[in-house]
Computed example of a mutant assay.
Amino acid sequence: MKKNNKLVLLGAALTMTAGLSMVSASVNADQVINAGQYTESAQQLQQIFTNKNKNFSLKEVSVENHNDNKQEPVYELEGFNAKKTQSAKMVVNAEKTNEVIKNKTKKMSSSDKKDANALNVNDVKKSPVDAINLAKKYANVTGNPTSWKLEMTKVNGNETPVYEIEFNGTATAASSSSTSSAKSSSVKSTKAKKSSKASSKKAIKNAKKVTVKLNATNGNKIAVENDD
């Protein structure tokens, strides 16, 4: 009987462990992605889009977390046909770009037609990697982006390919946190160390989302926006 009791207890422990692992996996799936890992070029993404959507022009590219792929990273590709009567939206697995998750077309509204500007991939001289590195510099952040987008936008009156790169607020707090840690190490007082750690946590908590817009042709900064 004692041996059976031990087996029952062991089985219960294993069941609990498995349950905890499943919870952990679901939590991780909801975390923001490192968009800096997904850097297919505009030319490659245009080819993926037009292979499935003949006589369509690519309008916009974005990489982000998406519910259609169980919270895994995806590329969203949007465009329109030559007559501007139909729009198309394609969702592609960012890990395996040959895996199309969704590809749907619908009738374009009059407002959609006004905003339908084809992405000029020949003018995209800066790769996503270059753009992300420049965005880090412009925003003074150390972390990785959580999403990025590429589309045509008017810059000084001219339609220009523009990257929009977003960073989670915690990325901007990294330098503040490391500075606080360095200061706390020089102060021997336990009270000072606790105060420093508290201020670091507060800085991370209060950090805002940062969005950088830059010219995809020459890499020039257009804007750095802090989320209020």
Rank of each mutant, 00 (worst) to 15 (best):
I132D: 13
D115P: 00
A139G: 13
A116I: 03
S189D: 15
N156P: 02
S199L: 08
I165M: 09
S177G: 03
G157R: 09
S184D: 12
K193M: 04
A116Q: 00
V162W: 04
S111P: 00
N120A: 07
S177F: 07
E166F: 02
N158K: 15
K201C: 12
K188I: 09
L134Q: 15
N144L: 08
K114S: 08
K188Y: 11
Y138F: 14
S184P: 05
S176M: 10
P145R: 12
F167E: 08
V129F: 07
P161F: 03
A135M: 11
T146P: 01
V129G: 11
V162K: 04
S177P: 00
D112Y: 01
S147H: 02
N158W: 00
N156L: 05
K126D: 07
V124Q: 10
K201D: 15
A116T: 04
V162N: 06
A174T: 10
V124K: 09
N168M: 05
G169P: 02
S111R: 01
K154I: 04
V121S: 08
T172C: 07
N158S: 13
N158G: 07
S195K: 10
P161G: 12
S185A: 15
S110W: 00
S186L: 13
A135Y: 11
M108S: 00
A118Y: 03
V187Q: 14
N122M: 02
D123H: 11
S195W: 02
S196D: 13
A118M: 03
V187K: 15
T179E: 13
N122K: 09
E151I: 04
E151V: 06
T142D: 15
T190L: 06
S195D: 15
K126Q: 14
S109Q: 01
S181D: 14
S176W: 01
K126I: 06
K136Q: 15
S189F: 04
N133S: 14
V121E: 06
K197R: 06
V121T: 13
P145H: 13
K197I: 06
F167P: 06
V141D: 14
K114F: 02
D130C: 10
T160R: 13
K149M: 06
V187G: 11
T170P: 00
V141F: 05
L150W: 08
M108G: 00
T153A: 12
L119C: 03
S111V: 01
D115I: 02
K126W: 03
N168V: 01
E166D: 05
S178N: 10
V162R: 05
K154R: 14
V121N: 05
N168A: 14
V129M: 08
I132L: 10
E164K: 12
S111F: 02
E159F: 04
T142V: 08
K125T: 14
M108E: 03
D130Y: 07
Y163E: 10
D115E: 09
K191P: 00
I132E: 14
K201N: 15
K114Y: 03
S111Y: 01
V141G: 12
S109P: 00
K202C: 10
S175Q: 11
S199K: 11
G143R: 04
M152V: 03
S147P: 04
K136M: 12
L134S: 15
S181A: 13
A171V: 00
N117H: 09
K188M: 09
